[in-house]
Design a protein around this nucleic acid. Structure first.
Length: 884
RNA sequence: GCGCGGUUAGCUCAGCGGUAGAGCAACUCGUUUACACCGAGUGGGCCGGGAGUUCAAUCCUCUCACCGCGCACCA
């Protein structure tokens, strides 16, 4: 016998190992089944599971489980990402605590430490996914820096370099002065900042007491100014163009030039130009052939190109000193408070500095062409569709992608520097030497580039590198392209776009047919979860407290498209209660001998109730399958919830109680009902299994002896429409309608405790009559019911036959609060009259009568009749009460 | 500035041309052997404002307001 309450902690732990042992998660490249492929977005290897992982992986697991049950060879390929910057930072922080510095250790020793750390804590998140019940094919687990993937990365780099899609270039990059690495544009986040705008007067050469005033938010960069620029149409400065200004502090002469880039209205209309430290100034400098003076070192401290007293100063200290000196020289015209935005490194959270240097670039604009086309022509489709706009907008304005990083943890760039600035790109050192020897005619010394590749370079290859590429493996042929990518919208640029570009370039085929983008999980107040805010919901705490099933169900039910998901504990608790409800329903079935049997034919059922529930199951299953296939997870969850709780527990089990317990029931009918009840329960377990794998598996195994097959490998049932017995459906709907009506009537009766039992539903007329005799305080209150079902004035103790085989005994109860009832009836009549008026207006409208579809017209007419009858009845009832 | 969402019951959100829905909360009643992590019921909405299209608009179009988010600009 099942325990009285469902204890998730007692059962969830035990199943997983068994599932895994049976090999049920595995995909089989030699299978005859149609494949279904999902590539898991690899979490950071050093990470721990947060609620966002729980969301994305639950959805992926649901689809994988569903398709596996639906008879497909489901591959869900798991893995982890080496996460260059993030991981390096974690390990450096740890070493820091021990007083060790990365640079003192040297590259090799440091990398050993990182690998050590990876070996120790790298598996955490993977273990946590198991706790959630996720079923990826663990035998195919990959890591972006394992041997195969590293080979793929080298191969990709070399091929792209050969095709001219990877090149080395000297340009301004986003330099992170804390991490000492270049960053790509999307790793820079703009943040609002309350700063100042300083207006500075630059003296004009040779003209005493004449100044040109410029405005700047970064006065320290003036040490690197090489021009002043004004708008060519600006009359104020016409005579100054072509002249020179004296750069204060530095005493350098800088030209005053004209360029239409300058906005006359902004500030003073004159702008200082620092080509080495601003992206716009750099372009301007290029146009006008200006000198580029770099005044920062890699720490963003002032270098030797500035006056001696500034050298070595941090940029903010330099700013102070510059301002101080300008003030002393009376060159600071004014200061105003402004709000502007500053670029920050997304990992380091320090202000990044534009810096001129050599880096490796990927020709993203060229790769984007096909990636745009593939979405335009629907080879890959976004769900929800509107994300395609975001994708297009970014792709159409894409800039060259800086792919080199001055880090140690990552894929070292397969490029070797030789004499005379030569560079050899090759998959192996040996090959590079061969190339060098060929070029120089003799052995030369080569040094491999110290830099590593942007993490997202290897992630971009994920959909095929994990399948054995560049080798032509059976897996690659079978599982590429994937069916769907499931991920958050926040990494469309970082990851989705890159996979599209790489996949199309290397495989000549999109990496996935569909991209399902889910929202972000926020806290109950809609705030983004973050450690500093302390509002982080740890999914494992939830699992501990409410169970993995409850968490999974909550996630599923809330994963509606296009909106953030607000997690609140109330909601989770509600779905935990649902699990308990299911548990208790199963317990009830067990107590009444309603156990699943293999040889039950649900279509052979004869009784109306049984025929009805079989059809209802079929409908729920069909709707749920459609919901899964169209990524409407919340709908799938709601269908299952409604059916289990609302249809099966609240109605079917209640209806069939008298059949099962009544003495007079025909034994064959009793058995049929037991069989069908057990069968429906089994179907519910099947339907819910993808969402709630633990409780359903536990019930599946403990309700009846089964063969070795487990629920997770069972077949998702396929029904066709003819399994729905429409007559039975109509009968039971009618029954439910009547009962609901009776209940609501009784609800506002003032019945003393113990005197009220609302209904007796029985198959036996005499049972019902006996039952009724026990409740003799009866009054006619049935006027609200439809005459087609009940006579308006049922006699005392009436017993009415409602549907085939079912008898409804109605104690037409006593103790009405007459005032309340009159009030209620008046209100009801008012509402109905309003409705009737609206309908009549419609029917009087010629346009409507002529243009509305026939069925709408018929419907409106029948509603008119219905309303009229009801109003008459209610009015009659009210009159009776008035008389009383 | 450009773009994308959102505005529906006290709260959190579904629905998206044909009589307004769920869960939670509130309130009333109830322990009849699955379940109080329960059952039955009630109350509560000018579906953000305005205009338009339509026989019919919460739903489609336009517009305004407010709230998110993304991108760009910012001397």
């Amino acid at each position: 016998m099942l325990d009285k309450t469902f204890e998730h902690n007692a059962i969830e732990q035990s199943h997983y190992a068994l599932w895994e042992q049976t090999g049920a998660f595995r995909a089989h490249a030699d299978s005859v089944k149609t494949p279904h492929t999902i590539m898991m977005p690899p979490p950071n290897v050093t990470g721990t599971l947060h609620i966002g992982h729980a969301l994305t992986n639950t959805l992926q697991d649901i689809l994988t489980r569903y398709h596996r049950m639906a008879g497909r060879d489901a591959l869900w390929l798991p893995g982890t990402d080496h996460a260059g910057i993030a991981t390096q930072m974690v390990v450096e922080r740890q070493l820091d605590a021990k007083g060790l510095k990365r640079r003192d250790m040297g590259r090799t020793a440091f990398l050993d430490k990182v690998w050590e750390w990876k070996a120790e804590s790298g598996g955490t998140i993977i273990r946590q996914l198991r706790r959630l019940g996720c079923t990826p094919d663990w035998t195919r687990e990959r890591f972006t820096m394992d041997e195969g993937l590293s080979k793929a990365v080298r191969h990709a780099f070399v091929q792209m370099h050969r095709d001219g899609l990877i090149y080395r270039d000297k340009r301004l990059v986003n330099w992170d002065p804390k991490l000492h690495t270049a960053l790509s544009d999307i790793e820079v986040v703009q943040k609002e900042n309350k700063g100042h705008m300083w207006h500075i007067r630059y003296p004009i050469e040779g003209q005493e007491e004449r100044f040109i005033t410029i405005a700047t938010t970064r006065p320290e960069t003036m040490l690197g100014d090489t021009a002043i620029v004004v708008n060519p149409d600006d009359e104020r400065y016409q005579d100054l163009v072509g002249k020179f200004a004296v750069l204060p502090i530095v005493d350098r002469l800088i030209p005053i030039i004209a360029d239409s880039y300058v906005d006359k209205e902004f500030g003073s209309g004159a702008m200082k130009v620092t080509p080495a430290h601003d992206f716009n100034d750099f372009e301007l400098g290029k146009r006008h052939g200006l000198e580029v003076i770099n005044i920062f070192d890699l720490n963003a401290h002032i270098n030797d190109n500035a006056p001696a007293e500034y050298r070595g100063l941090d940029r903010y200290a330099a700013r102070k000193k510059v301002l101080h000196e300008l003030e002393a020289q009376d060159l600071l015209a004014s200061v105003e408070d402004v709000t502007n935005t500053l670029p920050f490194g997304d990992r380091s959270d320090v202000v990044i500095e534009p810096y001129l240097m050599d880096q490796w670039y990927c020709d993203a604009p060229k790769l984007a062409v096909e990636a745009i086309k593939a979405v335009e022509d629907g080879r890959t489709e976004f769900v929800p569709k509107n994300w395609e706009n975001t994708y297009f907008e970014w792709m159409r304005n894409i800039q060259p992608w800086c792919i080199s990083r001055q880090l140690w943890w990552g894929h070292q760039i397969p490029a070797w520097f030789g004499p005379e600035g030569s560079i050899f790109v090759a998959e192996t050192e040996e090959e590079a030497y061969t190339q060098a020897r060929a070029q120089f005619g003799q052995a030369v010394k080569l040094t491999q580039d110290d830099d590593v590749l942007d993490t997202w370079f290897s992630s971009g290859l994920w959909p095929f590198s994990t399948l054995g590429w560049p080798d032509k493996t059976p897996e690659l042929a079978r599982y590429y392209p994937g069916d769907v990518l499931i991920t958050g919208f926040d990494i469309i640029f970082f990851w989705v776009a890159r996979m599209m570009m790489m996949g199309l370039y290397f495989m000549k085929e999109v990496p996935f047919r569909k991209v399902y983008l889910h929202a972000l999980v926020r806290d109950a107040k809609g705030q983004k979860m973050s450690k500093s805010k302390g509002n982080v919901i740890d999914p494992l705490d939830i699992v501990e407290k409410y169970g993995a099933d409850a968490l999974r169900f909550t996630i599923t039910a809330m994963a509606a498209q296009g909106r953030d998901i607000r997690m609140s504990e109330d909601r989770i608790e509600g779905y935990r209660n649902f699990a308990t409800k299911l548990w208790n329903a199963a317990r009830y079935c067990q107590m009444n001998g309603c156990l699943p049997r293999g040889d039950v034919d649900p279509y052979a059922a004869k009784h109306t109730l049984n025929r009805w529930i079989v059809g209802a199951v079929a409908q729920a299953q069909r709707d749920m399958a459609t919901a899964f296939e169209t990524f409407r997870f919340n709908e799938a969850a709601n269908i299952a919830y409604q059916f289990t709780w609302g249809t099966f527990c609240d109605w079917y089990l209640e209806f069939t109680k008298p059949l099962l317990t009544g003495e007079g029931t025909d034994p064959a009918l009793k058995q049929e009902t037991r069989d069908i009840t057990g069968w429906v329960l089994d179907q519910i377990l099947l339907m819910l299994n993808p969402i709630m794998p633990f409780i359903t598996e536990e019930l599946y195994e403990s309700l009846a002896p089964r063969d070795a097959k487990r629920l997770l490998t069972s077949q998702w049932p396929r029904f066709d429409a003819k399994t729905v017995d429409q007559a039975a459906e109509k009968d039971v709907e009618q029954l439910i309608k009547v009962i609901t009506a009776i209940r609501s009537v009784r609800a506002d009766m003032n019945v003393p405790a113990g005197a009220q039992i609302p209904l007796c539903i029985s198959t036996s007329q005499s049972d019902a009559a006996d039952w009724l005799d026990r409740y003799h305080d009866i009054l006619n209150r049935m006027a609200r019911l439809e005459s087609s079902v009940l006579a308006p004035a049922a006699p005392k103790g009436a017993v009415q036959t409602i549907v085939a085989g079912m008898t409804l005994a109605i104690p037409v109860a006593a103790y009405i609060d007459l005032d309340k009832e009159r009030e209620r009836l008046r209100k009801e009549i008012g509402k109905l009259s309003d409705n009737l008026t609206r309908i009549e207006d419609k029917l009087k409208n010629d346009n409507f009568v002529q243009n509305a579809p026939a069925e709408i017209l018929a419907e409106q007419k029948s509603r008119q009749a219905e309303m009229t009858t009801l109003i008459a009845k209610f009015t009659q009832a009210l009159d009776q009460l008035e008389a009383a």
